[in-house]
Design a binder for these strands. Structure first.
Lengths: 200, 200
DNA sequence: CTTAAATCGAACAGCATTGTTCGAGTTATT
DNA sequence: AATAACTCGAACAATGCTGTTCGATTTAAG
């Protein structure tokens, strides 16, 4: 009787291991090629294609699971960032952490964009978004960040610059070690209220 | 005898019309869906699929032709922008013009990215890029723009913000009429040298 | 040790795409 | 009006993907 307690259909140990292997393999495969096929992913996971479909009813649901997993890992990392104190310093710390996530998972975002139904991505991005938004709002209230542009725009601008940095690295015009520094300098300047001096 | 002068294989008038119609239709189709099929494009052009392949040997070459055409139109528009005088004002004018192009052709860029061989896009973007780069370099020499970040990074950052604006519009968080204003405010602040005041 | 769960590869059906071929019909050009 | 260029739709082959079914085999769990 596989049902230990009511409702929870307990999977066998090897099944759980394979599921984890598939999600892991899918993460790396989709990060390399957003349109990676299920064959490719199954092979990378060291598993038959049938097994994959045994655990995920469709490619779409697999991509969804991978995306959810990535978001969770991101949330965990971002949750440990100290967002107190001077908003500018806090933003610098947040960028430092966020940047690595964006760089690592941006191709995966592309995969999600043309596999998942519209709106699903923003639904999953909502929580991580809030963290950034809160910090920016606090900075605006304290006069550290400009208020002549909407908070949502500033969030988007920060996102855009990070994505742009990933592109620059891909194009070979930027080295990964300098990225965080450039992003921070650019965003801090962009957030400075008109009439105020840009921090050095 | 269709050969009027040596070498130039003169196409018949209706053929020329159809080619133009195909490129036009492809532009709008690929702008809506970067993975639009040749059937879709042919139908939109009011032309048989065979005719399309009669003029373009492969889907790839059609995408290339569309992209080249778009770049040419863009170059023409940007060539009329006055880039003299205060670098900040000139940049604002350049953004105003560039923005519309980015907004109109960004999906087409996606189509090009996964249809054209790597490097081809940057090859075609080289000329338009120079225009922006020159202006930023002048601004840097005159002390209007920061010099603690590479020119190529600043170019990329401007590009990223414009692309981000297009995303915001797509997501319904931004209206097209405010976009140029937001972009300009953000980029001008981002370009301000550390220690200097952000222009109002 | 017994049983149920999980695995495997091969093979199938279905779908969409690209690019080509054919023959018959239409239209611009001179 | 004669000719060559052009167009059309239908049909074809080749490819690659998704998702499913089959029967045989391995493996975890009580």
């Amino acid at each position: 009787m596989p049902a230990k307690s009511a409702g929870t259909a307990t999977k066998r140990a090897d099944a759980q291991r394979n599921i984890a292997a598939i999600v892991d393999a899918a993460t790396t495969c989709l990060s390399r090629d957003p349109s990676a096929s299920t064959s490719e992913i199954a092979k990378a996971a060291g598993v038959g294609r049938v097994t994959l479909y045994g655990h995920f009813p469709s490619r779409t649901e697999l991509v969804d699971a991978v995306f959810v997993h990535a978001i969770e890992r991101g949330e965990a990392a971002l949750g440990e960032v100290d967002l107190s104190g001077d908003p500018r310093a806090a933003l610098a710390r947040l960028i430092e952490s966020s940047w690595h996530l964006v760089d690592r998972f941006r191709s995966l975002l592309v995969a999600a964009q043309d596999a998942l139904p519209p709106g699903r991505i923003r639904e999953l991005h909502a929580d991580p978004m809030v963290r950034v938004e809160r910090l920016i709002e606090r900075g605006q209230k304290e006069g550290a960040f400009r208020t002549d542009l909407p908070t949502s725009w500033l969030v988007g601008a920060m996102h855009s610059v990070m994505h742009g940095a990933a592109d620059e690295i891909n194009a070979g015009r930027l080295t990964p070690d300098k990225a965080a520094e450039y992003i921070t300098a650019t965003v801090l300047a962009a957030f400075t209220p008109p009439g105020e001096r840009v921090p050095a």
